[in-house]
Amino acid sequence: MTAFQGVWILAEQSAGRVLRISHELLARGRELAQKRGTDLTAVLLGWNVCREDLQELIERGADRVVVMESPVLEHFLVEPAAAALAEIIRQYKPEILIAGATSTGRTLMPYVAVGIHTGLTADCTVLDIEAGTGNLLQTRPTIGGNVLATIKTQNDRPQMATVRPRSTRPAPRDPGRRGEIIRLQPPEDLPPGRIKRLGFVPDQDEHPLADADVAVAVGRGIKKGENIPLVQRLANSLGAALGATRDVVDRGWLSYPHQIGLSGQTITPKLYVGVGVSGSIQHLAGMQTSETIVAVNNDPDAPIFQVADLGIVGDLFEVVPVLTERIKQSRSSS
């Protein structure tokens, strides 16, 4: 086991451009590498990957970037990607490998984990290094998000985990930071695999929630779908994207892309404002890591207040219109 060293993250690309999840993983990886006293490597599979983007991985914290390029790695196809990644793991023996819980990471990682016989923990919210043993402590919500479980991969290496996109902010960029870029030749027998990609149908509407710096979430306290505009106006005054709890989405007051939480989106905005949101464990799982949390709720004991930085105890139908006005005034006067 001592042959296995270093913290690795699986970077992702699309059309040759490195995706944001890679930078989020670098933030996680940097922390682990520091605690473990080792270095951080980003591994990337693709084709014709933008050179500046590789350099950016270094500027955002990678000490080393290992990239393997081949036409069969241009789009994610599980068989060639798994063969390539397994080969790289055998060669470099990372001690820890973290990927995003994306459609790619959630498919590739379990496929590879079986192939190389090691453990994998999905959707971790907290990753830490155990003092003394140096083992990776992988904490994730389980049983419908009601409880957290800490999981270890004791005897197999690498220790593998996925983390949800947007559950951390991207690692900051330090221009001029130095590191090494290693280009690997794909193995000659890299299989094209038994799946062919025939095309792609992009989504029509955008989902601005995931990228928003400010999000306002509405909960069942709003009482009726017709009242949503009240909260929409608050969101507009803050330049925020509108999100919702599952109860609101289930009632058809807003569509599924608005759902924040365990079975919806995870967001990490600079500011989250919850209006008439109780703060169930499942909802918190999707917004707890927001930098600043403000809540409006008429129940002083609502759990949302336990994660809030500022809590307004009051009737949202009274508070929100006044608050919206004050924010507008404040913005126009600055």
Binding site: H117, P141, T142, L148, A149, T150, K152, D156, V307
Partner: peptide, 12 residues
């Protein structure tokens, strides 16, 4: 390969 070592209620 994996083992649950602890189960707990999240602390807010």
């Amino acid at each position: 390969p994996t083992r649950v070592v602890k189960i707990f209620k999240p602390k807010l």
